[in-house]
Simulated scan of single mutants.
Amino acid sequence: MFKKVLVVEDFDVINSGIKTVLDEINIQTVDYVSYCDEAFLKIKKAHLINKPYQLIISDLSFENDGTPQKLKSGDELIEKIRKEFSDLKIIVFSVEDKPFRIQSLYKNLNIQGYIWKNRNGLKELKKTIHKTFTSNEFCISPGLKSAIHPKETIEITSYDIHIIAQLSKGVLQDNLPRMFEEKGIKPSGKSSIEKRLKFLKEHFNANNPAHLVAIAKDFGLI
Rank of each mutant, 00 (worst) to 15 (best):
N110I: 12
Y114T: 06
I222M: 10
L6A: 07
I215R: 05
V5L: 04
N120I: 14
E194F: 11
I78T: 10
K98I: 01
E194R: 12
K83P: 09
I111W: 01
A147P: 03
N175R: 13
M1R: 12
H203S: 08
I164N: 00
K145L: 11
L221S: 03
V171D: 00
L48W: 01
K127W: 02
K42G: 02
I163P: 00
V21R: 01
Q28D: 05
L172M: 08
D59C: 12
I215W: 04
V95M: 15
L212T: 07
R101F: 14
F199L: 13
K151H: 10
S94F: 08
I49W: 00
E194T: 07
P187N: 02
K151L: 14
T132G: 14
I56L: 13
I78S: 12
F133L: 05
L200E: 00
S58R: 06
E155G: 05
I57N: 03
H211G: 12
G220S: 10
S73W: 03
E9N: 09
P52C: 08
I27S: 02
F85H: 12
I27M: 02
N136T: 11
F180V: 12
F2H: 05
G66W: 12
I81H: 01
E24N: 13
P52G: 13
I154Y: 09
S135C: 12
F62S: 04
A214G: 06
L88E: 11
G17C: 13
F133N: 11
L144K: 07
T20G: 09
K98Y: 15
L125Y: 07
G66I: 05
I57F: 03
L122V: 05
N120M: 12
T29F: 14
K169H: 09
L48A: 14
S188M: 07
K44C: 07
F40N: 03
Y106S: 04
T132W: 03
L122C: 08
K98S: 14
C36M: 08
V5A: 04
L125S: 05
A214Y: 08
Q173F: 04
I148A: 09
R101W: 03
A147W: 02
I91G: 00
I140S: 06
K201T: 04
K217F: 03
S192Q: 09
I222D: 04
E182Q: 15
K80G: 04
Y106A: 04
F62L: 11
S188N: 15
Q28K: 15
D160R: 01
K83G: 07
A216W: 06
Y32D: 07
I111R: 00
C139M: 14
E155Q: 09
K123Q: 13
Q112F: 11
G220A: 08
N175I: 01
M1I: 15
P177I: 11
I156E: 06
K183Q: 10
K80H: 08
P177H: 14
G184V: 10
K80T: 15
I148D: 09
V21E: 01
Y53C: 09
I57W: 00
V13E: 06
E79H: 08
I222G: 00
K217G: 03
Q112K: 01
E63W: 05
A46T: 07
Y53W: 12
N110C: 10
I57R: 02
N15C: 14
L122F: 15
A165D: 07
Y35G: 06
H130V: 12
Q69P: 01
N26K: 14
E194V: 07
S73G: 11
I115V: 15
N136M: 11
E194L: 15
Q54P: 03
L88N: 01
